[in-house]
Design a protein around this nucleic acid. Structure first.
Lengths: 150, 150
DNA sequence: TTTGAAAGATCAACTTT
DNA sequence: AAAGTTGATCTTTCAAA
């Protein structure tokens, strides 16, 4: 990965629909080397995937909640079961196992407070091993990007 | 937005590079209505953008840290300055103003602990109004998706 | 829904460094 | 050799019939 690759990735992170020609013009190259470099980075896994970002509010999913989850104990079995359960829940868009005062930090996206209440009661707190859930409601989204610093 | 739109969005959230033809086949339609629906949703803002997702580890950004930030007081001026400062920092990929025991929850992506230390000392703690920063280090990423539940 | 021109993606052969 | 350019071909986009 050289400087030209970095330039290409910076452009692609912002807009996955740039044509090879547009990228080539931006970095003073022609289509073919741009094409070859992108295909190489797709194969090596540096480029993971191309996705569409929706406007949360316009699709009626305007409530974001963070959950700090503490488990009764930290055995491998309990962790694995929790990981599996969480992966299946579409409301959970992020789940991180963290160091510190609790075990997991989850980011939840739901349409409204009523839906969140049901999610909390019926889907999250019932997962085996869950001991304590602290909820933090997002009042304002200051920044949210998929761009990794390069 | 009807059920057909939802089907299209579900596919596009997973893969932004599906052709109109492929989408049409998947949902038993022809290219033209699929094309028209996508263009309509792009115009209305339901579809925000198309982006490329990189593999964090393969681009050498393997450390994720969450920060709970508490401000000295919650005035509009202090908030606005903080929001502006954070927006400029590429290491900050998410920043949420939340209700509860602290003011902001930030998600930070950096190459390593040394870089994080410098970020904490030189970029985050120096923002005017910042009183307390609690750091939580991600040991394992259980789930991380850009897909909004539909 | 069908069709077709314009634009883009892909790749082979050639050129440069 | 490694990386870039040119140009030819196939596929997709997109608007009009």
């Amino acid at each position: 990965m050289d400087n030209t690759d970095i330039k290409i990735l910076k452009l692609l992170q912002k807009n996955a629909q740039m044509t090879y020609k547009e990228i080539a013009e931006e970095i003073n190259l022609t289509q073919t080397p741009v094409f070859d470099r992108i295909k190489r980075m797709e194969k090596s896994g540096v480029i993971d995937k191309y996705v569409t970002i929706l406007n949360r509010k316009k699709v009626g999913n305007s409530l974001t909640v963070f959950n700090q989850v503490t488990m009764i104990k930290q055995t491998l079995e309990i962790s694995q079961k929790f990981d599996e359960a969480v992966a299946k829940l579409p409301e959970v868009v992020e789940c991180h196992f963290v160091s510190g005062g609790f075990d997991y930090l989850l980011k939840i996206i739901v349409p409204d407070m009523e839906t969140y209440h049901k999610f909390h009661q019926l889907k999250l707190s019932v997962i085996p091993g869950v001991s304590l859930i602290n909820s933090y409601f997002v009042m304002s989204e200051v920044k949210n990007t998929t761009e990794i610093p390069l």
